[in-house]
Every structure is written in structure tokens, then in C-alpha cells.
Nucleic acid binder design. Sequence first.
RNA 1: GCCCGGGUGGUGAAAUGGUAGACACGCAGGACUUAAAAUCCUGUAACUAUAAUGGUUGUACGGGUUCAAGUCCCGUCCCGGGCACCA
Length: 1047
Amino acid sequence: MEYNPRSIEKKWQAEWRKKKIYKVKLDLSKPKYYVLDMFPYPSGAGLHVGHPLGYIASDIFSRYKRLRGFNVLHPMGYDSFGLPAEQYAIQTGVHPAISTEQNLNRYREQLENLAFSFDWSREVRTSDPEYYKWTQWIFMKLFEHYYDTAADKALPISKLERFFSKSGNKNVRAVCDEDTPIFSKNDWLAMSEKEQQEILLKYRLTFPGEAWVNWCPGLGSVLSNDEVKDGVSERGGHPVERKRMKQWNMRILAYADRLIAGLDDIDWPESLKEQQKNYIGRSVGASVKFAVKGHAGTQIEVFTTRVDTIFGATFLVLAPENELVAQLTTDTQRSEVEAYVRWAGSRSDVERMSEAKKISGTFTGSYAVNPFNNEKIPIYIADYVLANYGTGAVMAVPSGDQRDWNFATHFGLPIVQILDSQQNLDVAADPTKGGKYVNSGFINGMTFEEAEPALISFLEKKKLGRGKVQFKLRNAIFSRQRYWGEPVPAFWKDGVPYLIPENELPLLLPAVDKYLPTETGEPPLGRAENWKYSAPDGQKYEYELSTMPGWAGSSWYWYRYMDSKNGAAFASKKAINYWQDVDLYLGGSEHATGHLMYSRFWNHFLFDLGLVPKKEYARKLINQGMIQGRSNFVFRAKEKFYEEYLKIKVLQSFFAEMGVIEFDLPEFEAAVQYDFAFASNDLVIEVISKKLVEKVEIVHRAAEADGKRLLVLFSENLAAKINQPEEIAAVIRAALNGRETYQDNDSPESFEQLYVSQNLIEKYSPDCFSKLHVDVNIVESDVLNLEKANSRPMFDRANFKLDSDGKFTCSWEIEKMSKSKFNVVNPDDVIEQHGVDCFRMFEMFLGPITDAKPWITQGITGVSGFLRKFWSLFFDEKGNFLVSERLVSEVEPSRDELRVLHTAIKKVTEDIERFSMNTCVSHFMIAVNDLRKINASKRAVLEPLVILVTPFAPHLAEELWQKMGNAGTVCDAKWPVFNEDFLKMDIITYPVQINGKHRGNIEVPTEMPAGEVEKLVLEQEFVQRNLAGAAVKKFIVVPGRIVNIVI
RNA sequence: GCCCGGGUGGUGAAAUGGUAGACACGCAGGACUUAAAAUCCUGUAACUAUAAUGGUUGUACGGGUUCAAGUCCCGUCCCGGGCACCA
């Protein structure tokens, strides 16, 4: 009988659905295991080939754990609130719920086809009111709590109120806004309700407040830091500016230390932990207050990690946005300062970044006083000081800090040596802390260890400062001025927010006529008719008009899967107590500082409230690598630049005009979005780093030799570079006139360019390129040092060949691969041709799941062939099923057969446990090859093997399982037990080394003692020959391993 | 610049300090076939030698530890990722 994967797969998928075999129940008799995949945003493009990689690995693990007797929770759902659906709604008027539903159904279909063992009855959707009810509920809990630093946990606000009315806030140890006033019991009692509420907002874990935000006019909304990349929005690529706005905030800073400490308890990739630590950016130092000459009562507070260098502080620098700037500017400096502030404010983040090394700033005219030596030091403003870190002001120590040194050198400010170990202050700053202090008042002669505490206690005594811990992390902005998100369950009364009653949840998203801001600039919810809270007192109050950000719904969803239908709680206590936490979490590393930080934060909070049992919700996390498209000549588009819809269209027409590729838009979009590669008969290559510049030129030469055109796209920060077609045209003209092609210097800008060959320029008008908004350069062929380039490994990898006459050509494989229009291989085609089981195994076989890898289906025949061989083990040449009760089941398997089986059991079990799915597939192949050689067809060998392969190829396994006459599904079979005895060999082959060099092998009985092995080895002819009479200094036998003779 | 992770055949990759390159792709040769596809068999790190259980070199580069190093240590180069004026 022939192996026909598609018919088997369809049959079993229907059967499994019918029997609901993936339905999970709370079963106290079994140990639990929770495998979670990061749920997808259901985009219009559907699942791409990269998604399944993680899902397959987690599915294999889930099925494996199930076979090992665990009660496995392996759910799936959708992060279904989000911008694309809303943008689509703006364009088409279709309600986001409708388009989302459509996308979601498509996802469901694709996911089901891949035979994942998800329990769909537990599916969650963040945009479902029954779900976001609980997102809103958690929001309310955050509003109702503050962070108590004494208890080191969140406590109810009511407790704080009681405290205030008893003794004011002087002795309260709680996390609050910096500007919180100190008040007494009587002050508190004398406050109006509004005033009291305003005070409480300074403590609540979520609160509206003024903050510097990333405002994106293109999207009409604020964005979090991780939604902004290189000064433009991650989605859409619109420019983003800094703006001070009133926004809801999450006081994540209260948890900063715990978020760092918690990392020690979880098995997450080191690089990801490192990223989170960096993002939180904890630094320990001191804050120091400087008095200002002529401004009694005004103090400038600075934060420094090097208070020991304070005697070397020769000036202060404020951020241009610092509130004190206006006050401190003297009349003579006013026009200059104002001009500078205006200039600094007008610069986009992109500009700031690209000109980061340029020194700029101006003197305010005022002077501060160094509290340690009472010296008068000038106060400058400069944009190298950030407004939103620390206090937006620094004490500048040019001898110890390179940035201060640069500034001092530029403006001719003094540089004072403060440590006797410091060197070459004329050349650069020396930030080391060795040696003893000089020119440093009372710390002269001390070391760093002695000086620092002395200085801090001095500051504390004089009330001029204190030790302080500062974070890079900001409180998270929690509002978006958008429609398609969770409404904030709060209303405004007398200028302060109040929560709606809990029993009115969910606060449903109201209908609106358009998904755009109102004419007065309010968020879309401002369009909803009669959208007001009706208070018990008969009054109506405005609801909050902004909605929650994308990360709200994903910050707790793993609990909902535990008990997804619960109407009385986000999940029942019983369910949470049983499932506890996520044992294994799989997802992309791109969520390192977004979702994975916020969700940890919310989990710590829920833990404080006693609602969940673990501080950290995911014990082990694995980042699956991205699957990329690849070919040797590729055009690999970068999301950042091309994602924007319009630009895609421009590119489309651009390519069409050039006749490079014919394609339709959805395919192109999908390719671009997922970093797929495609190649054409023309040569297109992306340049991503400086080193590849050489390669480009090699390709260029090769291309010219072949009479082909070369197009190279540089894709970083392209959009912002040149916007005017005239400018582009000018650049092209300049290039044509023989301008230098590229500068191999440190300037990053030199890579953000489009390189095109001369004949391409000649063929197509410069306007054609101007649509791309990039620099254009002509590649000169003779710049290249061929020999040097040839020696580079990256050159070898690219498969370029150097002819004997010194001409470069492309190797044949490249041409062959370019036959198809795209290198994008649709997974559906693969499945249609080879089956789901093959697709699953092949994706695993590509390499370690954590590695990023290109999607090349060339090797799939290996896996496909393996499955057929596996299948054929069960049949004879005539197609009769061999493994049945009647035929061979009673025959005892041979030692060889058992050895093959148990080797496989051992290897596969070990490798699944360490997530080495690629080597599992190898072990299966070895086992099947070996069994074929010995014509094995005994039930006692093949049946356990079917169970082993079940997590990888469930359909195949189920079919064979049934054919063998088993009742029930193979998914509930028992994982075979490894027995060491079957691996024992009577004879063992020792490799024999002489001085570490392998000289031959010797077969000896396994049980032979080392002494006898030695004797036997020395008798061997090849040993004697190699010893050549030399005396044996040492004889090493590593039992079961190796023999080494030292002479 | 700083912090992580890497560098092994033509390719994807294996390798608790113990015969480097398992497994697979590709390629070459062969069998079957009118032919092709499919399938099966053999070979496949490089150089060298073919009478061998042949010899030499080889895991980015240079050193070191060890009986033994892809693996551990020190230094260098390169690639990838993250952060990037964080005081």
C-alpha cells in the first residue's frame, strides 16, 4: 500500500475534531504541563512560513509531554486588537471587528491544517468583550493600588487614604511622583475631594499624568518606546516626535527592581535577560543639588554615578527642554538660548540620531555653585543632555566623561585633573577610578572606595543630596488615541478620573461613524453618541476617550486559557491553582522589551494581590529563530522601509517599469513583510553592512560580464534621507559626473544609499529612482581589490567564482535557483505536495529552532523519502500490511532490532528534552535506515517506534497505530521506556591513538579489563609499526571510549 | 562605542574534553527503464598515495592548558543581534 499523506491527513484531522481528542480537562490525577505559544496578531496576510516553526516545536513538545503522562495545556488564541484592522477600517469603513473576524478565520483554517494539538475550546481573543472585560478589570485593580516600598508589594489605595487621614504622608514609604508634596494629617483632612484625588493619583499604579511621549501625527496616537524604531513608527513608518501630553501611565518603575531580580528565577535566554536588564537600565549613584548664583531658592538637581568626580565638575548642563532654562537665562544670553531651544525642539529624533556626534549648546549666562568647594561654574544648555532621564541636568566632569570632555574642548571650558592616575587629559577623558584624588578638597589622597561614602554622607548631612538609584526605564504610557482597543473603564468628574463600578464591566466599545479623530482633535471614541457614564446621582460624566495600548490584552492572556469561559473571574482559583504557570513559552525575541516586560510586570502585580501563585509566569522561554527567504542573489526588503503601503505600490511600479519582475501586489507584500527573498533574471542584492560593499562590486562585475543589470538597495533609514525628487536627480547627476562612489569611512550615512549600475541609470530616468527616496550612486567596477575580496569568507559563501582570467562569474546554482520568479515558497504548496507530517518534520530538520534560517525547500525530499521508508517498513513488496497479530507479532525481535529501537528511544527522548528537534529527525532516519537493512517488521519494535514519531508526524503515526489494531488514539499511548541492556554490545571497537593521532581500531570483548586491552593493543601489527620501537611512556584506556598511547 | 550570541565540507548541519563532518541536500558514477521521472546501490573535507586498518593537513587566526581541544583559557579578526549622548 502506497503512502498517501494527504488522504490520511484529511481523514485523521476530521476524526480528531470529531472525537475532540485535544480537549483538555482539569485532571488532578495527572501532573500538569503548560506549553504556550505567543499568540499571533491575525493580520490580513495570513500565517507565514515563519510562524509554524515555533508552533511545530511547541506542538511536538506538547504531544511528547502528553505521551509521557502529563495533562498538557496547549492553547491558542489571537491578539486581535491592533492598528492594521483600524487602518483598514479608516480606509474602507468596515468595522474592525468584522475584518478581524475574517482574518481570524483564515488563521484558524491554516492552523488546523497543520495539525496542532491546540484545545480550540479555550481559544481567546483580546478584542472579545468577555475577554477585555478582564483586561479592564485588571486596569481597575491597578488604579486601586499603590506600591508600598516597606511591604515591597502593591497594597490597596484605601490603606493609603487611612494612613493619610491618620498621619499625613511624611512617613509613608510608597512609590509616588517626584513632585508629590509633603502634607500632614490636617492638611489632608482640609483638602477638597478633588485635591485628595489628585494626591492619590500620584500614588496609583495607573494614573493620568503629563509625560514626554512619542507622538505620531501620522497615526494620530502616542506610541511606546518599543513601537518606535529609528524615529519612525514601527507600523507604518510615520515620523514620531516628542511631545508633552496628558496620558494614562503604568507605574512599571515601581517594579523595576523586582523585574531585574525575577530574571534570576527563570530559564530564559541570556541575551533576552540581558536586553531586559539593559532596558530597565538600573544605575546607582547620587543626586546632588547645586545652588544658583543670584537665584536664591533655586536649585539644580543632578544625578551622577560618579559623585567622586564632583571636584572636577567645571560646568553644569541642562537639557534644552529643562523647565529652569527660561528662569536661568540672562538677558544678554536670551536671544541665543531661545534660538537654541527652538532649534533643538524642531529637530526630529532621526536628525538627532544621525547627528549625534555633533557638539552643540549654548551658555545661559548663569552660574551654579559647587557645594563642595563653593566654586562658581557656568550653566550651559545642550541637547546631549536628555530631558527625560534623571533630572534633565548633569554636572559636567570633562576629565572623567568623554561627552563632557568633548563639550569642554569645543567651548574652551576648563578640564581639571582629579585623580593622580588620570592620563592624557589633553587627548581624551579618563573614566577609570584608580589612584588617589587630587584637586579634590577633603577627599584628596583618598581612593574611590573611601571617597564615595564620605561625599554622600556629607551631602546627606547638608541636605544637598543623597544616594540614589536611577533607571532608564520610564513609566509605560498606557493610552492610545485610537478606536480599536480596550476602552478605559473610567470617567471624568471635576477634572479627576474615577472608575466605573465593577459590575458594569465590560465597558463595551461604542459604535462610531468614522474611525478618525473628531474635528476638535479628540480620539475616535469622542464620536460615539451619548457615550457618557450615568452615575447613580443622575449625573452624566464623560468617559475616558483613549483606549488601551496593544500590549494590554497580551499582558495576562495565559491565565484566561486556564478557564476561558469564566464569567465570574479572569480564571477560577481552582484552575489557576492547578495550572499555576507556563512551563514552556515559545515566541520571537522581538518581544523582549515589549510584551515580555509588560506581562511580567502585570504578573508581579497580580501576584501581590494574591490572585496568582507565581511571581514569574513563564519558567522557560525559547525564542524560535525567524525563517527567512534566501537566494544567492536576493532582494531582501527590510520591513522598516517597505512596510508602508504606498511605498510598496511605488516599488511595484518601479519594478514593473524596469521589467525586473512581474508580480502581483499581495504576493509582493507578503514577501516584503516577512523578509522573503526573491530573485530574478536580473541581479538584485541587498547591502546590509559595510563589509558587503565589496561584495556588491564583485556582483556588479559579474553582472556586467553576463550582460545583466544590477540593482542594489540599501534599506536603512532610507525614507528620511532625501525627499525631493530634484535633490535625488542632482545626486544622480553628480554621480554620473564621476563623483566618488562611496566612502569607506565611519559615517553610517554612506551605507544608506542605492547603488545602481551605469547602464541602469542610462536606461531609466532619474525620476524613476526618486520615487524611492534614496541616495543613488553609481558603482565603479575598478575600485575593487579582487584578491582581497576573494579571500573573504563571506565571498565564498556567496558562491561567486573567480575565473582563471580574473573575471568574476556567478556560480551555476544561483542561476538555477533564479528560475522561479520568487524564492518565496508557499507552505501550502509544500503541504499539498508532501503532506503536513513532512512539512512539520522538514521545518524541524532545517536546523536548531533558535537559529534564524533561510527557507529553502531543496532538502525536503530527504524528509519525504524518510516518511515513505518509515511507512514501507510496515508493508511487504505486494503492499500487504506486515505487522498484524496473525503475521509476525509473536516473533521475538532480534538483539539488533532491539538495539536500533532503544538507541532511537534514548536519542529522541534526550533530544526532545533539550529541544534539539533537528537531531531527533536524524535519529529517526538512522533508525529506519538500520531497520530496513535488517528487514525488521516485528510489532515489538515497530509499535514503540510509531509512538516515538507521533509528536512529529501525528497523522502517519495514527494511521499505522490503527492499522496495527490498536484501539484509541496514538496521542494517548505510553511513551516507550528506554532499556540500557539492549544497547550493550559483546564486542566493542576501540579507536587506538598514538600521541593523540588516530592510528587504527581494535575490537575487544566489552568486558575485557584495561590491563588485557593494553596487552592486546600492543600486540597489534599496526601499533607496533607506528611505535617503531619507541618506549611507551603512558597507556590510557578510557573504558568504552578510546585508547591512547603516549610515547 | 557598550552588551550578548556566533564562525565546522559545495549547502543545511552533527559532535557529555575522547575516531571532526552523524543525518540530509547537492554532486558524480552505477542498476532498473525504449526514455524520463521515481526508486535502489556506491562514492563524496582537502591534498597525497594507492599494496594497505596508508600518509599529511584540517573546525576564522595566533598562542596556552591537557595523554587528548571544534569543545576549556588568553589575545586578534570577522559575522549576526540588541542598546546607543542613560551622566
